[in-house]
């Protein structure tokens, strides 16, 4: 759960794409090589990373019910939303919150997550120095 600072800018602009975003993007988007190449394709082992498609399950339902039960309905209206949310969730704020939220719902540890926020700008192609 991410909560914006009250009155602050509303759009998050993370410095680099998080690993969860990368997984969603490059594992099932883009051109499929098999459609173009047959003979020389190598079936290299890919460490499988759950593409995290949501399939609602009983666990999801129970979790929603529990979260709903925890809502304090009457008096919460007057509160500012950020305080309210922070209070109830133990105040996990900031950008990391999105990812930690994911982990709650995906019980199997995803090894790829551990080093999220890997940020190596260097080494990307810049265009166009000398070729080697």
């Amino acid at each position: 759960m991410t909560v914006q600072p009250a009155g602050g800018g509303a759009v998050e602009r993370p410095g680099s794409t998080s690993l969860a975003d990368v997984i969603d993007t490059i594992l099932d988007k883009g051109l499929v090589i098999d459609a173009y190449v047959n003979v020389s394709l190598v079936g290299i082992q890919i460490l499988t990373v759950d593409a995290r498609v949501v399939v609602a399950s009983v666990d999801t339902y129970l979790r929603f019910a529990e979260a709903t039960e925890r809502l304090s309905l009457g008096d919460a209206r007057g509160q500012g939303v950020p305080e309210m949310v922070q209070g109830a969730l133990g105040g996990s704020g900031g950008q990391a919150a999105l990812d930690s939220g994911d982990q709650t719902f995906h019980e199997e540890p995803e090894p790829a997550r551990e080093k999220s926020e890997a940020d190596s700008e260097e080494g990307t192609p810049r265009r166009f120095h000398e070729r080697d």
Binding site: L19, V22, I44, Q45, T48, S116, S120
Partner: peptide, 9 residues
């Protein structure tokens, strides 16, 4: 195998 976080990123 490929697919370490660094590979994906």
């Amino acid at each position: 195998p490929l697919g370490r976080p660094d590979d994906l990123v």
